[in-house]
Amino acid sequence: MNKKKIYSLWFLVPAVAIFVIFFIIPMVTSLFFSLTVWDLKSFTFCGFDNYKTFFSERSLSISVRNTLIYAFLTSGLKVIIAFFIALFLTSKIKTKDFLRSLVFFPNLVSAVAIGIIFKALMHPSKGLFNTLLATIGISGPNWLGDTSLALFSVIAVDVWKGVSISTVIFIAGITSIDSSYYEAASIDGATRWQTIRNIVMPLVRSSTNTIITLSLIGGLRCFDLIWAMTKGGPGFATDVLASVVYKQYAAGFFGLSTAGNVIMFVVIAIIAFPLQKFLNSREVYN
């Protein structure tokens, strides 16, 4: 190897060092401690007992199901809703600049603050939502206290918050489409829907892919909004992997919670990497 190649390789050293220190070493350490019963001073090797416990106890295993439901629903809804909002905000309306600012506002507020606000709004007797429903003679549900409804209530709030950044990404994608495509569609007599389906949707696929990937990974890792609104309750109805990990750490079950972290990492990796490869293969370049 000549001196020029050796010299160029030295530029990789900082990046590799950061990657090893902040990713490889913590990952290997977490994998090891997930196979032990440990506290802050000592550990005892227990093999895969932590993983067996995690999947055998309903209170823990249900979090995997909730995490998948939460991630896929929030991701899908953000894509659909944000796309149509972006279409509206890129049309010829006079107040679109103001409306864009209004749509982006939820992204400026922290998830914890939004969780606290919506927890109050969804209160079964004093909340604004049920108060408004009562004025038209409808008895509102217990949004966060009903085990069959609580998870979907949190999902709705997550979508409300996350659709803002998704809309901005779509707006950037739509405005970058060359006007010649629209001119050609107009000459061919294409309807508005045909233009959207055959021009806009294929040419913003890179934006769609970005939103799907970011929102899906965010949904799989979500903790702050859920914890602020329900703390995983009622019962285990809104527990996700991140909230279970936190609860086990707080209770002193460090090995079990570390196993939960490893499971969360594996779930994200299994879903995210093949999905990213699939989405990239379907991109259409403008």
Rank of each mutant, 00 (worst) to 15 (best):
G47Y: 07
S63I: 05
K78I: 02
G115N: 08
N142H: 12
N286Q: 12
Y182V: 05
V37F: 15
I116R: 12
I114A: 14
S148T: 11
A242Q: 05
D39L: 12
M229C: 04
M27H: 01
M1N: 11
G127N: 01
W193I: 14
G137M: 07
L77I: 02
I268S: 07
L102Q: 05
L279M: 10
F236V: 15
S139K: 15
S180Y: 12
F22M: 02
I212D: 00
S179I: 10
G252R: 05
I116T: 13
L149R: 06
S186A: 10
N66W: 09
K96S: 13
Y7P: 00
S207D: 01
F54G: 02
N198K: 15
T36A: 14
Y249H: 08
V112I: 15
A185S: 11
T230L: 04
K4Y: 08
L77T: 00
R282M: 12
L35Q: 02
A82M: 03
C46D: 09
V163H: 04
A251Y: 10
K5P: 02
F32I: 03
S91T: 00
G255K: 11
Y51H: 00
G235I: 11
S180K: 13
I116C: 10
K277R: 15
F54A: 10
G140T: 04
G255N: 10
V284H: 04
F45G: 09
A251K: 06
V262H: 01
N209C: 13
W227F: 14
V240H: 09
A71K: 08
I199M: 15
L220Y: 00
F118G: 01
I270Q: 01
V284E: 08
T191N: 14
P106R: 14
G47T: 01
V244M: 11
T67Y: 08
V163M: 15
V245Y: 05
L99R: 05
L203S: 05
T53P: 10
F45L: 14
E283Q: 10
I114Y: 13
S8V: 04
W227N: 13
S179V: 08
V79E: 00
E283F: 06
L60A: 12
F98Q: 01
Y70V: 08
G47R: 04
K78C: 14
K96N: 10
V245Q: 14
